[in-house]
């Protein structure tokens, strides 16, 4: 194995890691604030990709930039609507987080199969955001990967900023730490729940737009990404934004090297073995707070 080889693998790992990071942030964010495991995140990923496809190359042939913007906006509405229609009615009952678990599981099942019934198994492709490569000696990185990387870091900083500086963000954090207290001081809990779901689905949408050009769109694509994002969330420490991002880069790099040396079927198991070892050493993930 040459240096250039190692370098290119590292680049591939970092590029994939950036997408896992965005997806993981969506999961971690919803869990941190609402204490719900949102299994639908994977299905939202799939549907965001299909929406982008329908708007661009599928049916409407819009300008791709417009398609991306409409997709992201639609995802926010879907997230808010989903929370209002499905999650909110549950919240009146004790132990509703567990009930929410089954609802998100069942929604994921319905949405995945709906995609299969509507779009069929033929994979769809959406274009890269920017075409072309950067070449530097033996190293090669596509421009799209650079965009992905920048997007992941930007989203991370924006989220931190949002939670620390913006009124709504601070309110959400307060709600996460002390739900009863938050209600007493007059934080509009319902609105905050809707927003946090909206933000999470937007993150699923962004990761779909960034990752789908590489891994294609097919009805179960979201599950693969979801499981990896789930591992990333746990590895980084649930609720920790910084942890999630670092975990995504570590795990994606490990996965790329494992696939190179041992073969694709070992990617996921070793991904999880690394996690198990990590949890024995640090039971709350890298930067976990609870």
């Amino acid at each position: 194995m040459t240096v250039s080889m190692a370098g290119n693998l590292l680049i591939a790992g970092v590029a994939v890691g950036a997408v896992y990071a965005i997806m993981g942030l969506g999961l971690s964010y919803v869990y941190g604030i609402t204490k719900i495991f949102n299994y639908t995140q994977g299905a939202f990923f799939t549907w965001a990709a299909y929406i982008a496809w329908v708007l661009s190359s599928g049916f409407f042939h819009l300008n791709y930039a417009a398609a991306v913007i409409i997709t992201v906006a639609t995802m926010f509405l879907i997230g808010v609507g989903y929370e209002k229609a499905v999650i909110r009615p549950l919240r009146r009952f004790p132990e509703w987080q567990m009930t929410a678990l089954i609802v998100t599981l069942a929604s994921a099942m319905a949405l995945d199969n709906l995609a299969l019934a509507v779009f069929g198994y033929a994979p769809k492709r959406i274009p890269h955001l920017i075409k072309g490569n950067f070449v530097w000696g033996d190293f090669l990185i596509t421009r799209h990967e650079v965009v992905t990387l920048v997007a992941a870091l930007a989203i991370m900083f924006l989220l931190i900023l949002f939670l620390k500086k913006v009124r709504e963000g601070m309110a959400m954090q307060g709600m996460a730490q002390e739900p009863v207290g938050a209600r007493i001081v007059g934080i509009p809990i319902d609105k905050m729940y809707s927003y946090s779901f909206g933000i999470a689905t937007v993150l699923a949408g962004i990761s779909a737009i960034l990752l789908a050009p590489k891994i294609l769109i097919y009805p179960t694509v979201g599950w693969v990404v979801f499981i990896k994002a789930f591992v990333v969330m746990v590895f980084g420490g649930v609720g920790s934004i910084k942890g999630t991002v670092i975990a995504a880069f570590i795990l994606a790099t490990v996965e790329v090297f494992v696939t190179y040396y041992i073969g694709g079927i070992w990617g996921m198991p070793i991904f999880i073995a690394v996690l198990a070892i990590m949890l024995i050493i640090r039971p709350r993930g890298l930067f976990g707070t609870w």
């Binding site: 080889m5 290119n8 891994i215 179960t220 190179y260 694709g264 079927i265 990617g267 996921m268």
Partner: peptide
């Protein structure tokens, strides 16, 4: 010679080896 799971859609490591 490598074996990948069904529905694998990321082949960057394998392609890296092929390009080498």
């Amino acid at each position: 010679e490598e074996t990948h799971p069904w529905f694998t859609t990321d082949y960057s490591p394998q392609m890296a080896r092929i390009r080498e």
